[in-house]
Simulated scan of single mutants.
Amino acid sequence: MTIVRFGLLILATAVALVAHGAAPQPAVGDFSQIVGSRTGKLTVWRYADNPSIFVFDFPGLAYQGRSFNRITQFTEQQITEPYPRVLNEQEMAARLAAARRSESDFAFGHDVMVHELVQFFNFAQRDKIPLNQEELVIRDFLTAQGMMREWRGFWQAVQPNNVILSIPQTQEKSAGEPLINSTARYAILLHEMAHGEYYTNPYYTQYCQRFWAESLSDAQREAFKTFLGKYNYAIGLDALLINETQAYLMFTPDPASFSARKLGVADEELEAMRDAFRKGKPPTKLPLRWNIGE
């Protein structure tokens, strides 16, 4: 009986993999290797300088969006929901339409911790929300890599503090797909790596918390809240505010995504905030001055 059940389990697993594709095995790469790569297919990187960080590298923004948009909405944009829940496909499409966004430009990069992904999968299961094929690949990857497991009908985090990032590969502009050039890819990867640093380096996390509370003025904190609120971030979550502030302030070298004008301050004030962040000597190896293209 046990042998029969084991055989059925193998068969079911094989059918599932055929249905939505096997989760890719991670390749190890440093920042330069990742940013300079363009494989033309979904690639997963394990960051050489911080093995707790994995980067999903997508050949297309729509592909990335199908994989991570609902996850990011669940972790960062639960504003009006009476309780945490995973949106169904129709609800997510309505949110995109209301925000005048598409599957491709809802977000250009994503960051999430494994314990948050476990919540996403458990809440989807609780509310009987079907996962799409791309979300199933993420789930399969986490289980195959031993980051989570199924236990008595629920998903359980095994490595809860690992970080999953996602970025798009360079691409030409096409119908429904914005241009992603090498400069944009560098900026997106650097921004997302800043989130990975915040999640995994407790000394850096504490530094950012002190900077937010002690170095920024009330008006500057309000400026960041207003800026992030325009992009539907859940600005009532202090940890999210601080994490996004450090990533935009110091690690987003793309004026199309972040600038003094977008923040609503003078150029001199923005540079003064950046100088104050640097002068405090944050405990991180991330580049505090940008080297686009390296």
Rank of each mutant, 00 (worst) to 15 (best):
D30C: 01
D30S: 01
S32A: 04
G36A: 01
S37E: 05
R38S: 12
R38P: 05
G40L: 01
K41Y: 05
L42T: 07
V44Y: 05
R46S: 13
A48D: 01
D49Y: 05
P51A: 00
P51S: 00
S52N: 06
S52M: 04
I53S: 01
V55G: 01
G60N: 06
G60E: 06
Q64R: 08
G65W: 10
R66W: 14
R66L: 12
S67P: 03
N69Q: 01
R70G: 06
T72E: 13
T72A: 11
T72W: 11
F74A: 05
E76I: 05
E76H: 13
Q77P: 00
Q78W: 03
T80A: 10
P82R: 07
P82S: 13
V86R: 04
L87K: 09
N88Q: 12
E89F: 12
E89G: 09
A93M: 11
A94R: 15
A97H: 08
R101P: 03
E103Q: 15
D105I: 13
D105K: 12
F106C: 00
H110S: 10
M113Q: 15
V114G: 08
E116M: 09
E116H: 05
E116G: 12
V118E: 10
Q119K: 12
F120Y: 15
F121P: 04
N122K: 10
N122I: 12
Q125A: 14
R126Q: 11
R126T: 11
D127S: 09
K128R: 15
K128P: 10
K128L: 14
K128I: 13
P130W: 06
P130V: 09
L131W: 06
N132F: 11
Q133S: 14
E134T: 08
E134R: 08
E135F: 14
L136F: 09
V137F: 02
V137A: 03
I138M: 14
T143P: 02
Q145V: 03
Q145L: 07
G146K: 04
G146V: 03
M148E: 07
E150M: 14
W151Y: 15
R152N: 12
R152E: 10
W155A: 09
W155P: 00
Q156P: 03
A157L: 07
V158E: 12
Q159E: 15
P160R: 04
P160G: 07
N161S: 13
N161W: 14
N162E: 07
N162K: 11
I167D: 05
Q171I: 04
E177Y: 07
